[in-house]
Design a binder for these strands. Structure first.
Length: 569
RNA sequence: GCUCCUGUGGUGUAGUCCGGCUAAGCAUACUGCCCUCUCAAGGCAGUGAUCCCGGGUUCAAAUCCCGGCGGGAGCACCA
């Protein structure tokens, strides 16, 4: 590139930049853009800078219109706007090969699935999909004290509802014997030992970074103790410990537990086993033998990566790549069983499907749709930064998805009666959706209506309002019993429009409005508002589960014959 | 306390690894206009960020280095 080319390049960029910024450009901006578009000039940048300053001064001296015309005539190529490519979905996966990615979703069947499970499962599935790979759905059921059959089922139902498709489903507990073999191999090789110290000693030694005497025992002693774990020892009397490093800065590595004795019957295997691997041991081995290439987990496991890799290293097993992401929780909507359980037990919420909770079942009942959850989870991306999730974003995605298919209906909350004295209509037909063809409904009329209390309050004698889809009325009497007269039927954009319900066969319903559950870590006693309302008789013809948009009120999901749950505005 | 992770508008994120084509993109929220027999959806426009702070390296730093500070997590025979 010769000097004239360089000058021309600089002038073009300076002109473009100046025209975009009120006729004034700057050295640094031009330098950056010059380097950006002609990387080969990077070496010579020091020589070019004086040239750029000169040209920048020249360009800044030219009036804006002249800059623009010079640009158009001499540098048309710069005016071509290149479409900016936006990345949608998750970031690329390190070390991922098309067709060879295997991910896994490993919930413990110890509770009902919630938004946190949804995030994990969706990420697992999306990556598998992105690389044409596979997703394994594995129940991590290695603690019989916590698992229940009911939870296996609930998690599966939740996943199916979310539309997460997996290629394979299994239980860690079906592999216990294989895990025993690995454990024995571990002990045999001296990578683990059986510790018979009590819990207090173990934790004290950990804190003080000293090894306990059990770790000095020879292989024969360890093997003998290992055999004894299956019968002789009682729970808590012996555990298998990883031979780590008691002086490690990472407390996880200070000879952590690998297997322990639990006599509780397992929901699937009953009393077949009593030595159970703990999380670290089971997950590492399972991931490896399942062929998992990328294992995602939440951030609180991050310190356990060292152990995960160390276990597989000593076992000479293939190592998946472990990556972590931040937990997903909504503000004031805790997900933890520790908090939720007492709420359910004390009857503060109606159950795990109470619409105030972030469980999948609750969100379904409330009218949140799986596609919205997926879109939302993807919008959060894959990061480790702590997030206070914006529920309103979820609502917005949900609203856009359900709007085109939501039945429109009128509702009168805190209803007030309105009588139109000169009503002359006995029936009207109203479309069920403003844009989509969702049919029409017939409403019988007799001149008596209910309108919402809020609307009623703002009406004074003499006001003119339009009863939506019907006619315009002038208020002749306000108060608890409103009276009005028809003025005309033409649509007038300037007068207020309100919805109404025919009085003669109005349907009484309750609207459950879920509010934030916890305010400043305190249970919000007003977290569930119940509004009494009247709606059109057509409501009775709708199936439970139908999403309704009550005009000028909000979206609700029909929960039963006399109850709807407020989805969002 | 120790260790690890994290810090971009009100909120969630893109960009950070490999410094410059971004005087910071998108979404959501908010405001205004258009459309509409809804305060919905849709369309258009706008407000909003000293890229946590302070130093340093460099022609150039959200991006690299050092030092602070804020937030979160782990320190179980739970996962």
């Amino acid at each position: 590139m010769n000097d004239n080319d360089v000058k021309r390049t600089i002038r073009g960029i300076a002109l473009l930049n100046a025209s975009e910024h009120n006729g004034k450009t700057r050295n640094d901006a031009v330098i950056s853009k010059v380097i950006g578009s002609k990387p080969e000039l990077r070496e010579k940048i020091k020589e070019i800078i004086p040239l750029i300053s000169e040209i920048v001064n020249e360009v800044n001296a030219i009036p804006l219109p002249t800059q623009k015309s010079e640009l158009e005539s001499n540098f048309p190529e710069l005016l071509v706007v290149k479409p900016k490519q936006d990345r949608s979905g998750l970031p690329a996966l390190e070390g991922a090969e098309q067709g060879k990615v295997v991910t896994r979703f490993p919930p413990e069947p110890n509770g009902y699935p919630h938004i946190g499970h949804a995030k994990a499962a969706i990420i697992d599935e999306e990556y598998a999909k992105m690389y044409g790979g596979k997703l394994i759905f594995r129940f991590d059921d290695t603690n019989p004290e916590n698992e229940r059959l009911e939870y296996y089922a609930a998690i599966k139902v939740g996943l199916d509802w979310l539309g997460v498709k997996y290629n394979h489903i299994k239980n860690t507990s079906d592999d216990i014997e294989m895990i025993y073999k690995k454990a024995e191999e571990f002990i045999q090789a001296g990578h683990a030992y059986v510790c018979t110290c009590n819990k207090e000693t173990i934790s004290k030694n950990r804190r003080e970074m000293v090894a306990c005497k059990c770790s000095m025992g020879d292989t024969a002693q360890n093997i003998k103790r290992w055999k004894n774990m299956f019968e002789k020892f009682k729970p808590r009397e012996a555990i298998v410990r990883f031979r780590g490093d008691m002086r490690s800065e990472n407390t996880v590595m200070r000879d952590p537990t690998l297997l322990r004795i639990i006599d509780e019957p397992h929901p699937i295997h009953k009393n077949k086993y009593r030595v159970w691997p703990n999380y670290d041991f089971a997950v590492a081995i399972e991931d490896s033998i399942d062929g998992v290439t990328h294992a995602f987990r939440t951030k609180e496991y991050e310190l356990r990566n060292e152990l995960y890799y160390a276990i597989l290293d000593k076992l000479k097993m293939r190592k998946p790549k472990v990556l972590e992401f931040s937990r997903l929780e909504f503000d004031g909507m805790p997900v933890s069983k520790r908090i939720l359980k007492p709420l359910v037990q004390d009857g503060k919420v109606s159950g795990y499907d109470d619409p105030r909770l972030p469980t999948l079942e609750a969100m379904r009942r409330r009218g949140i749709v799986p596609e919205a959850i997926r879109k939302f989870v993807l919008s959060l991306s894959f990061t480790k930064s702590d997030t206070l999730a914006p529920f309103e974003t979820l609502e917005s995605f949900n609203r856009k998805i359900i709007d085109p298919t939501s039945m429109r209906l009128f509702i009168a909350t805190n209803p007030v009666k309105l009588t139109v004295k000169n009503n002359n209509m006995t029936q009207i037909e109203i479309p069920n959706h403003p844009q989509k063809d969702m049919g029409k409904r017939k409403i019988q009329l007799d001149g008596t209506f209910y309108i919402s209390g809020d609307d009623a309050k703002s009406l004074k004698a003499g006001d003119e309002v339009r009863l939506l889809e019907l006619y315009n009325v002038k208020i002749t009497k306000s108060g608890p019993q409103i009276e009005a007269e028809i003025t005309d039927t033409n649509f007038k954009p300037e007068i207020p429009k309100i919805q109404w319900v025919p009085a003669q066969n109005a349907v009484k319903i309750e609207v459950l409005i879920p509010k934030i559950l916890f305010v400043n870590d305190q249970f919000n006693e007003n977290s569930l508002e119940i509004q009494q309302a009247l709606t059109e008789p057509y409501y009775l013809e709708l199936n439970v589960g139908t999403e309704i948009q009550f005009v000028r009120y909000g979206y609700c999901r029909k929960d039963s014959a006399n109850q709807v749950i407020y989805t969002h505005k």
